[in-house]
């Protein structure tokens, strides 16, 4: 970040909305489409009116598909499917259309679309509402996938997504975005508590907003013994673990990818070649996903490294106790890190 800009404090959710409003004020092509947006985006509705904040029926395949072509037609839609789990219903629009148009048109036709969705678990809503799916989406060539972990990145990545010429999936974790957690978790109750990473839920943001480049990771903690890498809430769990590792004399470097696709290969390889150990913390599914891709990137670059991963291994259980074990937590990260650190 530039040194001459001032900072202010903002919540993760407000940061996204503030960046979005800033962009909407200068670019009339940006519109919001989605279920319940008249309520979820009530501030944008009151400022920009009903022509630019369009409440949709529960018809994901229709309105996401329409958003793809609206983007091709010159608008810059931000289309919301509430939870990333519901993207399944609209997958054809993304897999076979949004992701393919640029290639099929011989590089002549862009799809400047942002798909916005809440992701992640930790509030006991079950395996059909708590998935992460960023690796699954990033698997498709033509889709850019960003997963911010701080308010500054949330706003900055939203700005970049809005000016990106190709489809971007923007995923906001429900433990970071307070309104989602209240909407789906607490429901106005004060009898439930969550393990919210405070550094991610509220934090300093630049004033005025600065875009955060897509495809660039951030080093959250410098270290020399092991690289712990991930996105979203996983970063905050990794930072907790790194603090404990430091007390035991180990120096962990924590890398926030921020963008799942395209990957910051250079940044990752630089860190792993320094530490010689890579531990992936990934709230998405373990098999055939981000954690395996990171191993492939390191292998391809010829780096010799010890490797481990802490991911979600199966369908996320509804039961809060079982869910805690299923998601990457500090205990699991520490166990995996210690195992790697013992390897010579």
């Amino acid at each position: 970040m530039k040194t001459n800009e001032t900072m202010k404090t903002m919540s993760f959710a407000d940061a996204i909305e503030d960046a979005l409003a800033t962009a909407m004020a200068t670019d009339e092509r940006i519109i919001i489409i989605g279920e319940d947006v008249h309520l979820l985006r009530v501030n944008l509705l009151s400022r920009f009116g009903r022509d630019r904040v369009l409440a949709a029926p529960i018809s994901e395949s229709a309105f996401v598909g329409a958003a793809v072509a609206a983007a091709m037609g010159g608008l810059r839609p931000v289309v919301e499917v509430m939870l990333v789990d519901f993207i399944g219903v609209a997958m054809d629009a993304l897999l076979n259309h949004a992701a393919k148009t640029f290639a099929f048109s011989g590089g002549n036709w862009h799809v400047p679309l942002v798909v916005r969705a809440a992701c992640g678990g930790g509030y006991g809503d079950g395996g059909q509402h708590e998935q992460s799916l960023w690796g699954w989406l990033a698997h498709i060539p033509g889709l850019t996938v960003v997963v911010p972990s701080t308010p500054a990145d949330a706003g900055g990545l939203m700005l970049s997504a809005l000016s990106h010429e190709e489809p971007v999936i923007f995923l906001e974790h429900k433990l970071l975005a307070d309104y989602w957690l209240d909407y789906l978790g607490a429901g106005g109750r004060d009898t439930v508590t969550y393990d919210i990473p405070m550094m991610g839920a509220t934090g300093p943001v630049p004033d005025p907003w600065q875009p955060v480049p897509i495809g660039k990771m951030a080093i959250r903690r410098n270290g020399s013994d092991i690289t712990v890498v991930g996105v979203g809430v996983g970063i905050h769990r990794a930072l907790e673990a790194a603090t404990i590792l430091a007390q035991n004399g180990y120096s962990a470097e924590v890398i926030d990818l921020r963008t799942v696709s395209p990957l910051d290969r250079e940044g990752l390889c630089a860190s792993v070649s320094k530490t010689g150990r890579m531990l992936v913390v990934d709230e998405d599914y373990q098999a055939f996903g981000l954690s395996g891709e990171l191993a492939a990137v390191v292998l391809e670059s010829g780096i010799q490294a010890k490797y481990g991963r802490v991911c979600v291994e199966s369908t996320i259980p509804y039961s809060p106790e079982m869910e805690k074990q299923a998601l990457p937590n500090t205990v699991r990260i520490l166990a995996a890190a210690n195992e790697l650190l013992l390897k010579r």
Binding site: T26, H38, L39, V42, N43, L44, S46, R47, F48, G49
Partner: peptide, 28 residues
Amino acid sequence: GPMIKSAIHLQGASILKRSGSLATVTTL
């Protein structure tokens, strides 16, 4: 608070459209 702040923000839709949107929400 945030809703009214947004509604009276200098940049945005015309006043007519804004008050229409606000009315939609309160009606709901």
